[in-house]
Design a protein around this nucleic acid. Structure first.
Lengths: 210, 210
DNA sequence: AAAGATATTGGACCTTAGTCCATCAGACTT
DNA sequence: AAGTCTGATGGACTAAGGTCCAATATCTTT
């Protein structure tokens, strides 16, 4: 099954590599956009659908591994497939430990590359679904007033209204009101759902790519 | 800071490697136990404290990568550091993607190996802590009767007692009784805590090693 | 057959949670 | 100065959760 609306980005300083990858990946049914340098990619690579990045390790300017770091620290992370002419094992370990999908030496097998692309797009699809949910949750959380958020933190530990009231030195009545608004704003109907939501809220965007 | 009570297992068919690793790791302050083959290791390698495994990729009989598979499928998993004379990149990718801590080519730097050992033991320590919690949770869950467990599954979705009662075609009264027993047996005082516990229950032992 | 675990239910009662309506005060904006 | 947002409260009720005591029905195990 092909991933719909997918885009594969290629960053490699070698024109011939870009050309051949472009041809190969298009023939597999994916849209491709190529860049000759990491910076060019960083400047404009937004895509609404699932996407992944095929990245040369060694490049003038920002190297592939450096680009990986940058992507990880930003939230523009997407699965990366490394390709390289002169790769070594320590480099491979580093790249994979940071989440790269594969690390292929040139010349690589077309099948290996396409397999990796499939896996990468699969991962990104999953990650995007999760990210959407996370964003929705964070939007909800941000709609809470400071006091409401404070009350929420107590509610999800299982504290009773009266305990929360005592802790905050306010009346139990007030706690109920805040609590009610929290449930409304978070669109949940029970403490159980609230706990579930807020548990997920702690997931970091970078972890989502598996 | 040294990890207390740690044990490092070494599986390598080359006696000289076993000897030198034994010396190196002991000098770093860890207990070591060496094995000449994967099977010998599988038969007896239990250790109560944090431990990790230094594993030769290429060995007669069960290979290192095969042993990794076996460990992952069982719950005796421990962090693995691969060492090899003739490693290649695809092999490295495979090993690291399956969670290996490092993949070192012989001859390797003593520092690299010891760093890896530290990381591995660190991981195992963390994993053991989590596993203990998980085991406790599962013991609690197993103490529930089938009916109680069934009710629990509904409770943690946030369903009201009356809804659960209707679904199971029993009286709300009965639901309350079961629910009460569930809370007791799981040693929690609120639905919030119950949800937290049961969420963790889904974590698989293999995922714990990060 | 007796014992024990499991499942079910009722009654009585108390505690919590949640909601509708209404009020009041301080901070900030227009 | 008027309007808005946020926070804090009270009264009055309704609904839901939780507990103690007690009873009954199965089913399995000894």
């Amino acid at each position: 099954m092909t991933v719909e609306n997918a885009m594969v980005f290629v960053v490699d300083d070698d024109l011939s590599v870009r050309k051949s990858l472009d041809r190969l990946i298009r023939s597999a049914g994916f849209a491709v956009e190529t860049f000759a340098a990491a910076n060019a990619f960083l400047e404009r690579h937004s895509h609404k659908g699932p996407s992944c990045l095929i990245l040369d390790v060694k490049m003038p300017g920002v190297s592939g591994l450096e680009l990986q770091e940058k992507l990880l620290s930003q939230e523009y992370a997407m699965p990366i497939i490394f390709i390289t002419g002169h790769g070594d094992i320590p480099m491979t370990v580093k790249a994979i430990k940071k989440g790269a999908v594969n690390f292929l030496s040139k010349p690589f097998d077309d099948t290996d590359l396409l397999d990796a692309v499939h896996e990468a797009l699969q991962r990104d699809t999953k990650a995007r679904t999760i990210r959407e949910k996370l964003e929705k949750i964070h939007r909800c959380l941000e709609s809470l007033t400071p006091r409401e958020y404070e009350i929420l933190t107590y509610v999800i530990t299982g504290m009773l209204n009266k305990q929360i009231a005592y802790t905050l030195k306010i009346s139990e009545k007030t706690v109920k009101v805040h609590r009610g608004r929290v449930m409304q704003k978070m669109s949940v109907g029970s403490v159980a759902e609230l706990v579930r939501l807020t548990e997920q809220a702690h997931i970091k965007p970078a972890e989502v790519l598996l």
